[in-house]
Amino acid sequence: MFARAAASAAVIVTLSAFDGAAAQTANQPPDTMAARVEACTPCHGNKGEGTSDVYFPRLAGKPAGYLYNQLLAFRSGRRKYPPMNYLLEFLPDPYLEAMAEYFASEHPPLPQPAPSEVSKDVLAQGEALATSGDAGRGIPACVSCHGPALTGMQPGIPGLLGLRAAYVSAQLGAWRYGTRTAKSPDCMQLVAGHLTEADVTAVAAWLATRPAPANPAPVPKGTYALPFGCGSQPN
């Protein structure tokens, strides 16, 4: 008798626990990162591919370490963009890391390069700076750090493909004026400090014309040596 009562009690408990779990799942948002980053997607695209707004960058496929550094910098206010600073202010490190990994692991196709609005001469100047640099003025080539195919390197160096000229130009401007900074030694600030406004326009325009390479993934850490130290890319 007692055993039977206990058994049926156990069944009831099991059933109600099961019911509870099922009900909870039905009435809850999906337990996924995709649902958790819905606050990001109207500006950055559902898979981080970017949107029609030229100032909002693509996030998809960038190295997770780079994305995580940016999230930390926005959270602390080191990198200034009030809507981002505000959204991230009270989110813990492991969550930001998970967000970075989520967008790093998404691989929507790179967009078709848009026709450029600048002259051939300007594009040629941009190409020269990006691929060879200007040793006389202390400017290294973009490719010397961001990779021969401009796809970036794990864990901290971003690829430069799939970004619109307006975004790259705004970021280079921010590095030049010191409103965007990174961990010391702040390699990008050193480089951007040597650029003129015309250089910035040319490089940003040329980068935006690059087609997608066969393999758009960032190369593994240590694939090539950097020309100088960089706080965002530990050795």
Partner: peptide, 17 residues
């Protein structure tokens, strides 16, 4: 906005601006 990340809710869901 995002609610704060807490011990009881470490990965909050957010609302887009």
């Amino acid at each position: 906005g995002y609610p704060p990340g807490t011990k009881g809710n470490p990965m909050p869901y957010g609302m887009p601006p």
